[in-house]
């Protein structure tokens, strides 16, 4: 499942996307994130899944645009730390940051 956490407003798409089929719940990204946006827990969107999965903390979902901005997702010299750390390639950001701040 592609879990899109975040929002869309007049200026763009601001989502941190988790591919739950790739996520193994290792939790390394939660430690890599400098602003503590991620957590590991039960899959809220698939009640039949037994393995834990990474997700964006509830209180962060409406402010992801600002929380993630410090890592310059999609346009920094390197990918965001959560993306770098994830060995299974389960995390990525939508285009909002890149389109608005990248140029």
């Amino acid at each position: 499942m592609l879990a899109n956490y975040g929002f869309q407003d007049g200026s763009g798409d601001w989502f941190l996307v988790i591919d739950t089929d790739k996520c193994d719940g290792c939790g390394k990204c939660t430690e890599a994130c400098p602003v503590n946006v991620l957590e590991v827990g039960p899959d809220e969107y698939d009640p039949f899944r037994e393995e834990p999965v990474v997700k964006v903390r509830e209180e962060e979902r409406k402010k992801i645009r600002y929380s993630c901005a410090s890592c310059r997702p999609g346009y920094g010299e390197k990918p965001a730390p959560c993306v770098i750390t994830c060995e299974t390639g389960a995390i990525f950001h939508s285009e909002g940051w890149k389109l608005l701040y990248g140029k």
Partner: peptide
């Protein structure tokens, strides 16, 4: 815009 120095990712990762 965008001539600010970039932050160091190695530090945070």
């Amino acid at each position: 815009a965008r001539v600010v120095e970039r932050q160091d990712y190695d530090e945070s990762s």
